[in-house]
Simulated assay, not measured.
Amino acid sequence: MRRDLHAHPELGFEETRTASLVAEKLRQWGIEAFEGIGGTGVVGVIKGKRPGSRAVGLRADMDALAIHEETGLAYASAVEGKMHACGHDGHTAMLLGAARYLAEHPDFEGQVNLIFQPSEENVEGALAMIGDGLFERFPCDAVYGLHNTAGMPNGHFATRRGAMMAAGDFWSVTFRGVGGHGGLSPQLSTDITYAQAHFVLGLQGIIGRNVPPLEPAVISVGYIGGGQLASPNVIPAELVLAGTARSYSDEVRDTIERRIAELAYSTAEAWGCGAETHYIRGSCALINQPAQVDIAVAAAEAVVGAENVDDALRPTTGSEDFAELSRRCPGAFMRIGNGAAADGAFHAPHTPFYDFNDAIIPDGIRYWVNIVRRELGHASDSAQVPG
């Protein structure tokens, strides 16, 4: 299944084939499946044999990336310009494997909600499912996520309590002025290139002077466009900049959004031109709840041993829209090692040579089953999961 998914990648909110395959497999194993949640999302429901009112959510992402695959694998992408370059094919396969096992061994209390989410790469899928009534239709007392990490050894897990990943936002600024001849009469223009240059330099002042020193935050410029390369003697009348901003607290997030706009408008005014700003909030910061981390760590230790589980993983400024699920329901996000070569080399995700490591699928399945046993059964149950 993993390699079939890999050969047929679909971008965010286009996962019709993937969602159909997931729903088909769930129903084949006697699991009630609900399709079309948040567009192309799927939720499977497994009820335990034991009486109980608690419910736990297990989430896997399904979407691929707009990247041309260059792995040369026999099961490489059959779709030009699209590939599973982040391992979501493997995440889906692991949760399907756990679903099959839990359906065959429903010796737990309450209910398991299997959340197959679309469009994680665009950080829109979680909110789409939430907006479509995910937690109203499938209430959860706790929710868990699992993602592979390239370079982390096979057979290892890692997580942390508290802040683990940053909020990921996007911003753009358009400067508009009067263009002109840069060689003959530059004094007749309102040169927006001056405005953008001072604006870009000023961005880091937001981090250095408006954000508290102990609060992590990043502002980066990823795009600058204006004028025509074929006409370098023409001062452009419009110039666009765009970038990303990362932060961990709502207060810092608010400060960055406000100060980018203030800096753009004041810089434009200083150089006699105008500015228009847009700030788009992506997923919020991913904050793991201690109680759920304790359960996740215990579940991972039951699979690979305590010596192979790190519960103090260093936080990153990457973003992950599982954060939107865990903001509304207590949750924990876990990393599973995707392995590396003997010399330590590996292909990073979001690159044309990346591939999910099939060897970690069994550990991922056992991890999911152990989460259920610890959340909805007895702690000793986790030891009964086959090795």
Rank of each mutant, 00 (worst) to 15 (best):
V143G: 09
Y144M: 14
G145W: 06
G145I: 00
H147V: 05
N148C: 04
N148S: 11
N148I: 01
T149Q: 08
P153S: 09
N154V: 14
N154Q: 12
G155V: 08
G155L: 09
F157S: 07
R161F: 06
R161A: 13
G162T: 01
A163H: 13
M164L: 15
M164W: 11
M165E: 15
M165D: 06
A167I: 02
A167G: 11
G168C: 03
D169H: 03
F170Y: 00
W171S: 09
V173D: 08
V173M: 05
V173C: 08
R176P: 00
R176L: 07
R176T: 13
R176A: 12
G179M: 00
G180V: 06
H181N: 09
G183E: 11
G183V: 02
S185L: 02
P186Q: 02
L188Y: 15
S189A: 15
S189Y: 03
T190S: 11
I192N: 03
T193L: 07
Y194W: 15
A195V: 10
Q196W: 14
Q196R: 08
A197W: 12
A197I: 13
H198Y: 15
H198Q: 15
H198E: 12
H198L: 15
F199T: 14
L203H: 02
G205E: 09
I206T: 04
I206L: 10
G208R: 00
R209L: 00
R209T: 01
N210Y: 00
P212C: 00
P213C: 15
L214P: 00
L214S: 04
E215C: 02
E215T: 10
E215I: 03
E215S: 06
S220I: 01
S220Y: 10
V221D: 04
Y223H: 11
Y223A: 09
Y223F: 03
Y223Q: 06
I224V: 14
G225S: 14
G225H: 15
G225Y: 14
G225F: 05
Q228G: 03
S231G: 11
P232C: 10
P236N: 03
L239I: 12
L239G: 12
G243V: 13
A245E: 06
A245R: 07
R246L: 13
D250C: 07
D250H: 11
